[in-house]
Simulated assay, not measured.
Amino acid sequence: MRHIILLTLTGLLLYPGFAAGIEPCNPNASEDARTILQWLESLPARETNRLIVGHYFNGTVRQGIDTNIKPIYDHTGKWLALAASDFIWWNSENAGGNVEALTEWWKAGGLVMLSWHISNPADPAAGYKGSCDIERALTEGTDVNRRYMNSLNKGAEWLLRLQEQGVVVLWRPFHEMNQGFWWGKKDKLQFARLWVHMFKYFTQQKGLNNLIWVYAPNVANYAGYLPEDYYYPGEEFVDVVAIDYYGRPSLNDIAGGYGKLEALGKPFGISELGSYGDSKSVIDDIQSKCPRTVFVVPWYGKFSFLAHGNVEGLVNHPWVMTRDEVDWRAASEIKGLSP
């Protein structure tokens, strides 16, 4: 008993706030998903190693890691903590390899995020753009619904393969819904129906319990963009809130959205980043303008850390958590010993 008490006290010092008690919106969420969510909630209480830094990439997962993440490791000796992909680049030929690569990343200690530029079920030739009657997409028996459900089943299959490998996914569907770049910018109640339909289908029908559900609007800094919380489908269907940031450099447009979303009481992250100075400056800006941020993930290409430079300053910043420092498993062991 004395040994358990000492370990528990040590855990409270090493992982302050970890037992805060936030629960996943899916009551059947896996224990790892629940633990990671609670761990995310605890990170702002830390003084160091409190900000997960990752990277989005295109192409296959292996190509993306080799192009956007491995060069940072080659230069600094440290891996970023999170790998992020989008189902727009997945297909029946490469899905197996993508699952294998993300499983390897997960087993090496990394975290995984996935989003989805889902095809327009009313006009497949338009890709993820165009317009779609959400009512028809959700009404059984319509051609639009048939195509939409085929897409959902395909995505669910890939997520189930990851679940079979034990991989927890920060799942970010329907992102940037407030700015209208894809087919789903509709009335807020229609969007809520779309979100809740996917949530219930994936969790109740498909048994996907490895997902942490991330609501991620764009920063509302341009004419026509609706407020960041406008489409929020409800706390019972969201685990994490985040912003895709393509505003002025130095996070100068983030204050309003950060305030709205952080007030919802969920862990907050920057799920896409496209406007910043050098890579280290991102962390300095987060410290001063949105300090409760728990992850930041730039887009690829001209938005990448490599394109912005100073990756050494980034990975050596005291706030930054690299892959070798991801410690939710250790925190979970301590938590399990709590009396």
Rank of each mutant, 00 (worst) to 15 (best):
I5V: 15
T10G: 14
G11V: 06
A20S: 14
E23W: 08
E31S: 13
A33L: 04
Q38R: 10
L43S: 09
T48Q: 13
N49M: 03
L51A: 03
V53C: 14
T60Y: 04
Q63T: 12
G64M: 00
I65H: 03
N68Y: 15
P71F: 03
I72S: 05
H75M: 14
G77H: 07
K78E: 15
W79C: 01
W79T: 00
L80N: 02
A83W: 06
S85V: 04
D86P: 02
W90E: 13
S92D: 12
A95R: 06
E104C: 12
A108V: 09
S115Q: 05
S115W: 03
N120D: 05
P121M: 11
A125D: 13
A125N: 13
E135K: 15
E135T: 13
A137P: 11
R147Y: 06
A156S: 12
A156N: 15
A156Q: 15
L159D: 09
L162A: 00
E164C: 02
M177W: 03
G184F: 15
G184Q: 06
K186Y: 09
R193C: 03
H197F: 15
Y201G: 11
L208H: 13
L211N: 00
W213M: 10
Y215Q: 08
A216M: 02
P217A: 01
N218I: 06
N218G: 08
V219C: 02
A223P: 15
L226V: 04
P227R: 07
P227V: 04
E228S: 00
E228R: 00
D229S: 10
Y231P: 06
F237C: 07
F237M: 09
D239V: 00
D244K: 01
D253L: 08
G269F: 15
I270H: 04
S271D: 10
E272R: 10
S275W: 09
G277N: 08
S281F: 05
S288Y: 14
S288P: 10
K289S: 05
W299T: 11
S304F: 00
H308D: 01
N310W: 05
E312T: 12
W319Y: 12
V320Y: 03
E325A: 03
V326L: 01
D327Y: 02
R329S: 08
R329I: 03
L337K: 12
